[in-house]
Nucleic acid binder design. Structure first.
Lengths: 357, 357
DNA sequence: AGCGGGCGCTAACCCGATTTAGCAACGGAG
DNA sequence: CTCCGTTGCTAAATCGGGTTAGCGCCCGCT
């Protein structure tokens, strides 16, 4: 069928040298091992002419490195946002000549075990354990064997694994600052969580951290949260219900929605009452879901940097792989990736703002 | 660091037999090769106790099969819809004990070449070449070497490669039938393409095929397309503009939008004029983008079966791999995956419908 | 001439499995 | 008792590279 692959032996024969010599030249160690210029050229030319490419499977068997990393997620590959995470990881890996194995566990521990095993069987050089939502996960002990990184997740039990996460606290601060910069001081309500740190959906790290950031930034400006409504799940229908409930008693100047889906519900609740965004109510949110730039007015939101998260995870994994060789001891560090504000049309200056500055 | 992997040699030693015997037993060929029950049990027990798992890299080197397939796409991993494609492929592959290499070309031919090379270097057993949009692609000659399948794409030049595609013609028929079943006979307009087969964005297979299906189904019912507006790109803003343009001259009873993003624009244009969906105008569309079930009224749409497409591609690839071994000659077949109708609230019975049947 | 040493290259082993060819032991037939 | 055919297992080659140890040769020195 396909003409048999060109092997090192073919190159060696064509160049009239031994396999050893060919190997040395091609791995760049020819210089230090005093291979003559003449032979070096002959080997290089032969390799080029035959279009030789080393068989990575073979190299993998001998050296133990398959130039491959495993990307295991709960269900991350399925969502648009998280697809970017994979894309970032893919590109960062490619730049180093590595490929990615993808696997989804669907939250099934047994599936996860099998998947990790399958990757281990293929001698992956490292693993990225990714989560769809930012949360704490139980780290399967199977992965403590080799280099690994948690992505968008923190270990439930203390482990030496490094983790890569979006900087949600700073994101909360930024969301608040968007409103503060627009002159808002009063009538700022939260939809999805708060106002206190106990009024937060469990399991969701993002909720807590965003809330902390929001309160910090507002607090520093001497501004108080006017009120809040929680949502059992961060879906549009709950955002709608929560906002409707809020609007029954007060008229807010600004809403900080805990994600874009909630904001969709809020938009609808406001629209139903004839309230205009942003003239009557400013809205700021989190995630930068694609829908945020589709709705009118387009939603100002603090973006989850999925692409960068993916890249960063690979970067950290590679330092981990290096470290493994160097045998340096170090604790599992937490890396935070900044979440950028996407300024769009859902925020307007507060009508009550001082025009002093 | 990690306790060295258990190898076949370890199992053999523990069972007190040779590696050959252990291999024979574990590969299930012990029976036909007359290994005694006693030895068989000893080997199996040793393997079990040591938790032996064969090193697939090694098996790959020896047998040429890495139990891995490559999934190369233009940019498919990034979108929500297409993520499902990967998920389908992932699961179908996993059921057979295969893993997936993922790669994105970004439409860059050079990148594609490198990616295919990298996969070839890792001895993938087969390749899936996927496209984000249904379209014709130039098949890189690098892949003709091994088994391969086109996914969501047709080859530009004739090749022996099989292809897996959504059944867009039937989808067009189904969309039309949704309206026909609701009693619509008049005032059916198309947004995105048509009315003639020449009024179609180039490169888009889906446009042509959906249009063909629509015209067939309507034609069979003796119904004519009342008119159409094309869109330079199938994005909400163009859907908005096209629908606004349409509404300047006529009031439609029903719209068939060529995808959900166009339908979003159409929704807005109708809303701007105070027209209610579905009371005044029924809307049916294609793709089943997540947004279709978020908007109110939820959009009736003919779904792209991404998950099934991914599964099917893997299925076809495996028959291709078998075929490769059997050396059977056969042409590149085109497999069509049905597109299901998601009936929601954007279609109402025609007010002019005969109430006879 | 004999010896030491650097230079340039290669033989041989290794990674972890599969697979081919064949060897010892045993039983039954002649 | 010898010969042959099974039965039950194993030695060795193989896949395609990386790596270690070391071999021959030429040179210069004494």
């Amino acid at each position: 069928m396909s003409p048999r692959r060109v092997t090192l032996a073919d190159v060696a024969k064509a160049a009239g040298v031994s396999r050893t010599t060919a190997s040395l030249v091609l791995s760049g160690r020819g210089r230090e091992l005093r291979i003559s210029q003449d032979v070096e050229q002959r080997v290089l030319r032969a390799a080029d002419e035959l279009q030789y490419r080393p068989n990575i499977v073979s190299v993998g068997l001998r050296t133990g490195s398959s130039r491959t990393i495993g990307f295991v997620s709960d269900t991350v590959a399925t969502t648009r946002l998280a697809g970017d995470m994979i894309k970032g990881a893919l590109e960062a890996a490619r730049e180093r000549g590595f490929m990615l194995f993808i696997g989804e566990t669907e939250g099934d521990a047994e599936l996860e075990r099998l998947l990790l095993q399958a990757m281990h069987d293929r001698q992956v050089d490292g693993l990225i354990l990714a989560s769809m939502f930012t949360r704490t996960i139980k780290v399967p002990k199977a992965i403590t064997a080799g280099p690994a990184v948690l992505l968008n997740a923190l270990p439930k039990q203390p482990t030496p694994l490094p983790a890569v996460l979006p900087d949600e606290v700073e994101a909360g601060r930024r969301a608040a600052r968007v409103l503060l910069d627009a002159g808002h001081r009063d009538g700022i309500y939260l939809i999805g969580a708060g106002p206190g740190l106990r009024n937060v959906p469990s399991e969701s790290l993002a909720a807590v951290e965003r809330l902390v950031g929001i309160r910090e930034a507002l607090g520093e400006a001497g501004v108080k949260v006017a009120g809040a409504r929680t949502c059992p799940d961060w879906q549009p229908e709950y955002g709608l219900a929560a906002t409707q409930d809020l609007l029954r008693t007060v008229q807010p100047r600004a809403l900080i929605c805990f994600n874009d889906r909630i904001a969709m519900g809020a938009y609808q609740a406001l629209d139903d009452l004839g309230l205009k965004v942003p003239a009557d109510v400013s809205v700021v949110s989190f995630d930068d879901h694609p829908i945020a730039s589709w709705v009118r007015p387009r939603l100002t939101t603090v973006a989850l940097p999925h692409y960068e998260l993916g890249r960063k995870a690979v970067d950290v994994l590679f330092t981990e792989i290096e470290r493994d060789r160097a045998d340096t001891e170090e604790v599992g560090q937490v890396h935070r990736v900044p979440m950028p504000v996407r300024s769009r049309e859902s925020v307007a200056p507060s009508p009550t703002a001082d025009s002093l500055d």
